[in-house]
Amino acid sequence: MVKYVGKRIIYMFITMFLIATATFFLMQTLPGSPISSYNKLNDNQKAIVEKKYGIDKPKPVQYAIYMKNLAKGDLGTSFAFKGKSVNDLLASRIKPSFILGAQAMVFGTIIGILLGMIAALKQNTFWDYGSTFFAILGISIPSFVFATLLQYFVASQWHLLPVGLWNDGWKSSILPSIALAMGPLALSARFIRTEMIEVMGSDYITLAKAKGANGFEIAFKHAFRNALIPLITVLGPVAAGLVTGSLVVEQIFAIPGIGEQFVSSIMVNDFATIMGTTLFFSAFLIVVIFIVDILYGVIDPRIRLSGGKA
């Protein structure tokens, strides 16, 4: 186990290093200059600015400096937000993104598990078809389509909730959270349904029934736990979906989060911010997947990490 964790951590660092390197050099090949928005400057002033951001030096030197700073956790200085460090930028925007993500996650998984359970226990009934159809919608309809439709109907037509922005307390987080929650909801509903149906058909469920357990005890004491454990594995895709979703959903609802900032920094070629955010997202997703794998090994007594997973 320790050996496995150690190996995984080494892989995580290699991956992060590769992403950082790739991001750095890809950024250098970008068309347009990070200071193209400063085009009113004369050559002399440009040189001063370039010197200030260190982009007058040769590429390998820039790379070395960047990696050195990165190792210290310093993501550099934003070009667009003059003089602000990327770390500060991210820190100032993490709260809305975190709230949205967490709400979507909790809401989505709980409703998803419920729907999945209902579908599995009432297999081939109206309930099953209804919840399966709902899950298909959630998986199929892109988050930005869902978000725009929510915004159009719930906010601008029926005026039930704020159209956007982050200035109406919890209320402003409801619509974007729902839009984001559709993914986790649909994924967990489908997953739980399949797992429950499989578990309910297993021998130990028949044995539990043969011991005199009633439907409720079978579903919750025996089946639910066994169906729930593998759900941990969808957390990886769910987290990735939430990050992807946050880029568009935050933009649609004009929420000052990290996703919205990422998209706008792409628009203005703010290299340092793009790189910083990319690394932030990557680190987040890599850590989530790492935690999922470790958790899965700890929680399920059947799984031995040395046993080699398919």
């Binding site: 297993s202 005199g212 025996h222």
Partner: peptide, 26 residues
């Protein structure tokens, strides 16, 4: 409901495959 009172008390059962007939998480 009545049947549940009989199963495991008056009549109980052993299955073929012991590898799958126990709940792995209990």
């Amino acid at each position: 409901r009545e049947m549940q009172k009989i199963r495991g008390k008056d009549i109980s059962m052993i299955f073929q495959d012991p590898m799958t007939s126990l709940n792995p998480t209990m």
